[in-house]
């Protein structure tokens, strides 16, 4: 059917794609336009003033409260991405290389079932474990490892734990898919030539799966930096991240211009990281 189209045919084809295109334009592109406009307005004495200016962006640069949130977001996201990768890679590798072939699908399925717990509920479940009177402290106190309960909930450690739990499942899936695509011949050849298992891994398997790792890491970065729920439930009010500050502008102060400007900053950061990743991947392929 993909031949040269008659005029009449082309009109029909447009009819199929138009609903989705219009939907995307009206409810995705247009809201973004409204957001840009809103970020260029001002809010004085609780009233939104429709004068064009860059006050919101200037405020972002001048107030430590705002850019500290961005710094917190970046630190948190980088930590989460690295820890998740370090934990997920061996898991994916063991499932792909050590678990017998016919059990692999089951092993993978088991590793991602908790993925389908509701996002809000999952963070709450971690609170049950990490809270002052939660499971972890009860266990530590009972074994005498600590004398006083640890204050983990409402710190960055709790947020990292909640995030890492989620992304280990996601990354195990993507890294596993990557490892399975690898031809075993490369490793076999290296082993025949006398390379030990560690050397085979460091010089063959790891470099060949690096592009896949980068894609997974980028996915983690994007999902983590834009998330409000986990930091809000587990991290609490200390060391706010950017999405928390954005939500605060809306729910506490109804300051839409500021929230819009902060959202655009967040989008710019993500786009920048995307460009860096894409550039790195192109260089890697060209090599």
């Amino acid at each position: 059917m993909r031949d040269k189209l008659s005029r009449e045919h082309e009109v029909r084809a447009w009819r199929f794609v138009l609903p989705a295109l219009l939907w995307t334009l009206i409810f995705f592109v247009m809201p973004f336009g409204f957001m840009v406009v809103m970020s260029l307005w001002d809010r004085i004495d609780n009233v939104i003033v429709r004068t064009w200016n860059l006050n919101q962006y200037r405020e972002f640069l001048l107030k430590p409260y705002y850019w500290q949130a961005l710094v917190n977001s970046l630190q948190l996201t980088v930590t989460v991405t690295l820890v998740s990768l370090v934990l997920a890679y061996p898991l994916a590798w063991i499932i792909a290389m050590r678990v017998p072939e016919r059990w692999q699908r089951l092993a993978l399925l088991l590793a991602i079932i908790p993925f389908w717990t509701s996002y809000v509920v999952r963070s709450y479940a971690w609170l049950l474990i990490l809270a002052r009177n939660g499971l972890l402290n009860k266990a530590l106190l009972a074994t005498g490892l600590v004398d006083l309960p640890l204050e983990i909930a409402a710190t960055r450690y709790a947020t990292v734990t909640g995030f890492v739990h989620f992304f280990v499942m996601l990354l195990t899936l993507t890294i596993y898919a990557n490892l399975k695509q690898l031809s075993p011949n490369h490793v076999r050849a290296a082993a025949d030539l006398g390379a030990g298992p560690v050397r085979c891994f460091l010089h063959i398997t790891l470099p060949l799966t690096l592009p896949g790792i980068m894609v997974g890491a980028f996915l983690t970065f994007v999902l983590c930096i834009g998330d409000y729920i986990t930091p809000q439930i587990l991290g609490g009010g200390n060391e706010l991240v950017l999405p928390q500050v954005i939500m605060m502008q809306i729910s506490r102060r109804a300051d839409f211009p500021s929230a819009a400007a902060l959202s655009i900053v967040l989008m710019l950061v993500v786009s920048l990281v995307y460009l860096l990743c894409a550039r790195w991947l192109r260089l890697e392929r060209a090599r």
Partner: peptide
């Protein structure tokens, strides 16, 4: 991010 999609629609 969902937050930005939601905020855009809200605005």
């Amino acid at each position: 991010s969902y937050l930005i999609i939601g905020l855009g629609l809200l605005i």
